[in-house]
Design a protein around this nucleic acid. Structure first.
Length: 276
DNA sequence: CGTAGACCCTGCGCGC
DNA sequence: TGCGCGCAGGGTCTAC
């Protein structure tokens, strides 16, 4: 579910209610997500501390805390981060694995049924060296992301362009939905070899990735089944999807039926007429 | 070295 | 209605 746009939407909707707040208590209710939760470290690094800022790196949400530590959260496939409303606290729902109680009386809830998510802390100043981040590639919405960057990364690689685009060591944040969507926008076939893409097409693809992600953020993200923002609201970009989850439906550009096939174990959607 | 496949986990929709 | 199967937006590890 959560690719870069969804994580960015969560960041933007959480920031007003979270930044400047103080963490009163941390309750760990499930022992393990993708990695075991270190309840002691979470309490030590968060309790009594002010939240100084909210950032994003790829699909990670970064909560900077007073005292030089940062809480890193990853939503995996089904993760949700929501702030409870002011007033009496509701009891935790199923799959709410971590509850961050705030001094205001509200709380930040981390819910993740499939438990592919992550929650851990690290020194703010040394985040880039953390094994979770050290290998990550460029931010697609940053100034360093151009066709040139993709072409350079591709020169050391083989194989089809769609899994390449989803490789976080190349560029971060592009998951299964937006890889299909960006390739459609750039009119590039997902099976095309990275060795057979011209400089002009790499430039077009980089632009398509940027535009697709930006538009999805503006629309509040894609809610196919369970994505919600920091206030519990669904996104709207699912109605703007051109190809993803639209097998058999007409291509919005030419009307040909959208096709689905499996690539590196994931569903890929494309228009066989528009994408070459 | 790079790529393909299995695997982690729960829930849902579908066909029978 | 109930059951089994396939599939799902993430990433990592192993085997080639």
């Amino acid at each position: 579910m959560p690719e870069l746009p969804e994580v960015e939407v969560v960041r933007r909707t959480l920031a007003p209610g979270l930044v400047g707040e103080r963490v009163a208590a941390v309750e760990v209710r499930a022992p393990a997500l993708r990695e075991p939760l270190d309840a002691g470290a979470l309490r030590r690094d968060l309790e009594g501390r002010l939240v100084e800022g909210l950032r994003r790196r790829g699909k990670y949400l970064l909560v900077d805390l007073e005292g030089g530590r940062t809480l890193a959260l990853h939503l995996g496939m089904t993760g949700q981060l929501t702030l409870t409303a002011a007033g009496p606290e509701r009891p935790p729902e199923p799959h709410e694995h971590v509850v961050f109680r705030l001094a205001s009386g509200r709380s930040l809830r981390f819910r993740d049924p499939r438990r592919f998510g992550l929650a851990f802390t690290a020194a703010t100043a040394a985040l880039e060296a953390d094994p979770h981040f050290a290998h990550l590639g460029v931010e697609p919405l940053g100034s360093g992301f151009r066709g040139r960057h993709l072409a350079a990364a591709a020169s050391r690689r083989r194989g089809p362009v769609k899994p390449f685009l989803m490789d976080a060591t190349v560029v971060v944040g592009v998951g299964n939905i937006y890889a299909s969507e960006a390739l459609f926008a750039a009119a590039i076939h997902p099976r095309r070899s990275v060795a057979r893409i011209s400089a002009a097409r790499w430039e077009r693809l980089a632009g398509a990735v940027r535009d697709t992600l930006r538009r999805a953020i503006e629309e509040g993200g894609t809610s196919l089944s369970d994505f919600v923002d920091g206030e519990g609201r669904a996104g709207a970009y699912q109605v703007s999807l051109a190809v993803y989850d639209r097998e058999g439906r007409p291509c919005p550009r030419c009307g040909a039926p959208i096709r689905r096939f499996v690539q590196a174990g994931r569903s890929t959607y494309h228009c066989p007429r528009c994408q070459r």
